[in-house]
């Protein structure tokens, strides 16, 4: 099973093809964001949506704002375009970390077995008992309380590393308070998002562990870590990476929910969930201001849908029981 084989199968599957097209669209949107939605000259941060006045009442689509403005006159079109960058950044960085954590826990548990396996899997189980969104909300509020004091020690460093990877923020600088709330949300999702990967990695390594080449490597006296990284990992990792890519959609969804509740991105930041949170104040008159839900909502839906369409097809391709059937 190589990358080329999987890709060919993906292109042939109409559902996956739609997903790939959508993803391509979002990538174009994110890469050329300054072309689609030019940053106003006096803007301090391109990720803060430009405002056209301060009136609270949303304005429906018109000549100046092709998708209208939401409460506080934030331009919806600008927010959607730049929000695609936020979505990719958040999704990719979270996935990177959860995948690494999952692979580490899963491979150590599977390779060493015995009580190490037992302990690690019990811990995984405990983490899995929590409802994902609930814990993300919980940990975010704890972290925001802690960071709010500004004396968080080791926690500040973890936020800085994340800030470096997500925003290209220098490690020496102080973290921008606007980005800090986003980072706390990301940390929470990472802390409670690694378990599936750990379980799948463990399962896969347990399977390849008993193949002849692994036993052969052990017989010639290869060291534990060498067997793990040179012989087992490369053969067990591919399905794990596929699952990881499927997770991006669900992480973005969770982050959007945090923003919607007021815990993720701050007011006015180019983030889809944050943009929709304004709609909470306009529920009785939503029919009149439908644009404040529909456009940003479509952006999230299509983004997550794209990943899920590709992921669904990938699972069918990779599931050995499905191979050979139509």
């Amino acid at each position: 099973m190589t990358f080329g084989y999987v890709f060919k199968k993906l292109i042939k599957n109409p559902i996956a093809f739609i997903g790939l097209l959508l993803l391509l669209g979002f990538i174009i949107m994110a890469v050329w964001a300054p072309v689609f939605a030019p940053v106003p000259e006096n803007a301090r941060d391109p990720y803060m949506i430009p405002r056209d006045g301060f009136s609270a009442v949303p304005v429906p689509p018109n000549e100046d704002h092709i998708l209208g403005t939401t409460e506080g006159q934030y331009d919806i079109f600008y927010g959607i375009i730049w929000g695609s960058r936020t979505a990719f950044r958040i999704g990719v960085v979270i996935t990177l970390f959860t995948t690494l954590m999952g692979i580490m826990v899963g491979s150590v548990a599977a390779y060493y077995g015995g009580w190490i396996d037992e302990v690690l899997m019990r811990i995984t189980e405990i983490f899995q008992t929590f409802p994902f969104l609930l814990t993300a909300i919980t940990l975010t509020s704890v972290l925001q309380a802690v960071y709010g004091r500004g004396e968080a020690g080791a926690l500040i460093y973890s936020a800085k590393i994340l800030a470096f990877l997500t925003f290209g923020h220098s490690l020496a600088e102080k973290i921008n308070p606007i980005q800090l709330t986003i980072l706390t949300g990301m940390i929470s999702i990472i802390m409670f998002g690694w378990m599936t990967i750990a379980r799948v990695t463990r399962g896969n390594i347990l399977t390849v562990k008993n193949y002849e080449y692994a036993i052969a490597a052990e017989t010639i006296g290869a060291k534990n870590l060498r067997i793990l990284f040179r012989h087992l990992m490369p053969n067990a990792i591919f399905p794990v990476l596929v699952i990881a890519s499927m997770n991006i959609g669900s992480y973005v969804l969770t982050f959007a929910a945090l923003s919607f509740l007021g815990l993720g991105a701050q007011r006015g930041y180019a983030d889809w969930g944050q943009m929709i949170s304004f709609a909470r104040n306009w529920i009785p008159s939503l029919a009149e201001y439908s644009h404040i839900v529909i456009y940003p909502g479509m952006a999230i839906l299509l983004f997550v849908l794209a990943w899920n369409l590709v992921g669904d097809a990938l699972r069918d391709i990779l599931d050995p029981r499905m191979r050979g059937t139509k």
């Binding site: 969930g273 939503l286 999230i300 839906l301």
Partner: peptide, 23 residues
């Protein structure tokens, strides 16, 4: 099913309110 799995709960809920309450 994939669409239902992809739609954010809050977007879906707000859309329902838009149509069946506000409208």
């Amino acid at each position: 099913a994939i669409a239902g799995w992809s739609i954010p709960t809050f977007v879906f809920g707000l859309l329902l309110l838009l149509k069946f309450y506000s409208d």
